[in-house]
Write a protein that binds this DNA or RNA. Structure first.
Length: 645
RNA sequence: GCUGGAAUAACUCAGUCGGUAGAGUACCUCACUCGUAAUGAGGAAGUCGUGGGUUCAAGUCCCAUUUCCAGCUCCA
């Protein structure tokens, strides 16, 4: 007999040789039906696992991430089985479960199109209906290689070859299909209910662009059709917020073929929003000890050679001229660091001068690869709320904390704070060519940063290989409507560039030292931040950010003069206001203003004109009735002042 | 850069087997002068992304190229 302790603490004795599924059944048929995998002594395992000794067991269902993962991982195997049935020559690569679904990478002889996907999905449904039992078995490394060679699966062979000689490998078989897999998996294909293949994409074998590009098929799976439909609906809804679509519809920006990729045109409304953000950021920074610099957009290659950009970032720069032929070669700046350092170097600095906080609204140019541009999120020219802060070691933590607090203040004001996560981006010591500095320097920089982050109790994930070439970063990450994560804000500690540029200060004991440099942004780059604001608010911005805050809608031509008078009064008070002078019915004008997502509509007609009033309609709450113009002005000014959302 | 998809009026899109370029919205004109999400009538608007090719004939087929979209890789 063995003793099984359950999550609640209850323990029960079972015969040797019973599987976890049997145990679940013993507890209740209901549990056996809904559980997908189990956690045994802290390890996620199959339900087919037979405990050999006493163990603690926690059954995992759809409500657990691991349960969903097992479910969708089985779906990915069913996809692979369907692919092998319909395209027997396709080669299998890998196929994991991911956050909202699964994918599987294949090498096909011919491209797969949408109708192939439909056919594959139909085949998957057939396999599910067949309710094929899934069996697990193990092989030695040598046997595994032999089997996959016989099956003609070169990618699987390569995966197995990378494992240690004495490894024992687990396989899962479902009827005519068999795959190398660590598991866990469901008991049979019939456990799956609602599956959907979504789209195909290219993906490099092992994520390395030097390798062959495989075809990745993405799909998702849910235990109920209604849940699948709800998910697909939700995706559809999210896409309506896509800044790249909405931003164009709302006339915030556009692109033009002849200007080129990654070079958006900010239209008046988008440019206005950027100006509002920029003024807000600069004023806030300057009120918190920052000073401004204004530095050139380009420099000779000499500067980038000192900073290391020439060796480590040349592909990312726009370069004019040729080192071989031309006396001087220039490059547009991809970062502001080496430029702002020149301001520091302008004279000898004392320890009393520190910290020095240099802010700049800085336009940068990066020659991104052509396929990488995306709306306003990834562009070739962008403007960032840049800053470099030079300080002494004893000031570092406090200054870092202040930079972080400023970033958080900005995110909270914009309403994005609840959507972000932290990433501590470290170097990859196995890829040291990408970075400057020594192992010791990196260890020191990262340890310093780790200490500060732990002390400030920042809940971060570590990103290996995500560091800048000169130092570690704290990245504040955010996801767009497609679930793709990007860095919105970054705060970095740099001990290397000060030395390279000969930046020093004279300490209290008369010795010369290199300052620490914090590279940071307070709101990120305006283009990307604007993109995320568009998606966050679906274009219905808080009043303080809205490019048009008030739209005046005269009932008929008779009240146009009064409308103009109201416009002048509001405009003089700093409100961004427009009048709809068109000769249209009021319902029509309201509809248009509502679709433009203007926060307030002021309807003016006979009554309003007589009483110096306006009939207020809020975008959010609809008709709010008439009020004196002055009262409305006071209210909206209060709302703008407090940056209410 | 790579894989796949797309590009037709200002916008959203239709255009079958290769045979005279279509709709709705927006825009302009006229009438209506209107009270909280679309008044009616009329008009103008397209080198079918660009450049080649096949054909008696190309929006449609082929090649190249630019841009856009999704993903990969890369990145703020």
């Amino acid at each position: 007999m063995i003793k099984i302790t359950l999550k609640g603490g209850d323990a029960k004795e079972f015969e040797q040789g019973v599987s976890l599924l049997d145990i679940a059944k013993d507890i209740s048929e209901g549990l056996a039906r809904v559980c997908l995998a189990a956690e045994m002594d802290g390890k996620v395992v199959d339900l087919r696992t037979v405990p050999e000794t006493d163990a603690s067991v926690n059954f995992l269902t759809w409500d657990n991430e691991e349960g969903r993962s097992a479910y969708r991982h089985t779906a990915s195997h069913v996809l692979a089985q369907a692919v092998k049935r319909i395209f027997p020559t396709a080669k299998l690569a890998i196929g994991p479960a991911i956050e909202n679904g699964f994918y599987y990478d294949f090498e096909f002889e011919n491209p797969v199109n949408a109708s192939d996907l439909e056919q594959l999905e139909a085949e998957m449904k057939k396999i599910i209906k067949e309710d094929i039992a899934i069996e697990r078995f193990t092989l030695s490394r040598a046997e595994a290689i032999k089997m996959m060679e016989e099956k003609g699966e070169p990618y699987k062979v390569e995966l197995i070859q990378d494992l240690p000689e004495d490894a024992e490998l687990s396989f899962y078989r479902q009827g005519d299909f068999c795959d190398l897999c660590a598991g866990p998996h469901l008991m049979s294909t019939g456990k799956l209910k609602a599956v959907k293949l979504q789209y195909t994409a290219g993906a490099y074998w092992r994520g390395d662009e030097k390798n062959k590009m495989l075809t990745r098929i993405y799909g998702t799976a849910f235990p109920k059709k209604s849940e699948l439909d709800a998910y697909l609906e939700q995706l559809e809804e999210a896409r309506k917020r896509d800044h790249n679509k909405l931003g164009r519809e709302l006339e915030l920006f556009t692109t033009v073929d002849s200007i080129g990729q990654g070079l958006p045109i900010m239209l008046p409304k988008g440019a206005k929003m950027m100006q509002i953000l920029q003024r807000f950021v600069e004023d806030h920074e300057d009120a918190n000890g920052w000073v401004r610099t204004k530095t050139p957009y380009m420099a000779k290659s000499d500067l980038y050679k000192i900073s290391g950009h020439w060796d480590h970032y040349q592909d990312g720069m726009f370069i004019f001229g040729d080192e071989e032929k031309d006396k001087e070669v220039f490059a547009l700046r991809p970062m502001t660091c080496p430029f702002q350092y020149q301001a520091y170097l302008n004279r000898m600095r004392s320890y009393r001068d520190l910290p020095l906080r240099y802010g700049e609204t800085s336009t940068l140019f990066r020659n991104e690869a052509s396929g990488e541009m995306h709306g306003l999120i990834r562009v070739r020219q962008f403007t960032i709320s840049e800053g470099h802060l030079m300080c002494r070691p004893d000031q570092l933590e406090e200054e870092f904390k202040n930079c972080l607090e400023m970033a958080i203040y900005m995110l909270k004001t914009l309403g994005l704070y609840e959507d972000v996560s932290y990433r501590f981006s470290q170097w990859d010591p196995n890829d040291s060519d990408k970075y400057i500095g020594t192992v010791e320097q990196w260890d020191e920089a990262q340890n310093t940063m780790a200490k500060i982050l732990d002390h400030l109790e920042i809940p971060y994930k570590v990103g290996i290989g995500e560091a800048a070439f000169y130092g570690p970063k704290l990245d504040i990450q955010i996801k767009n409507v497609f679930g793709k994560e990007d860095t919105l804000i970054t705060i970095q500690i740099d001990q290397m560039l000060a030395e390279k540029f000969g930046m020093e200060y004279v300490d209290s004991d008369g010795s010369k030292k290199n300052p620490y440099i914090i590279h940071r942004t307070s709101i990120g780059c305006y283009e990307r931040t604007l993109a995320l604001l568009i998606e966050k608010y679906a274009g219905a911005f808080p009043t303080w950010l809205a490019p048009v805050q008030v739209k005046i809608l005269p009932i008929s031509e008779h009240y146009m003069d009064y409308a103009e008078q109201v416009e002048k009064e509001l405009s003089a008070a700093g409100i961004r206001v427009e009048v709809d002078y068109r000769n249209e019915k009021i319902g029509y004008k309201i509809r248009e203003a509502q679709l433009e997502k203007v926060p307030y509509m002021l309807i003016v007609g006979e009554k309003e004109q007589a009483e110096n009033a306006v009939a207020v309609r809020s975008r959010k709450e609809g008709d709010k009735g008439a009020m004196k113009l002055n009262d409305f002005l006071a209210e909206i000014q209060e709302e703008i002042e407090t940056k209410a959302r």
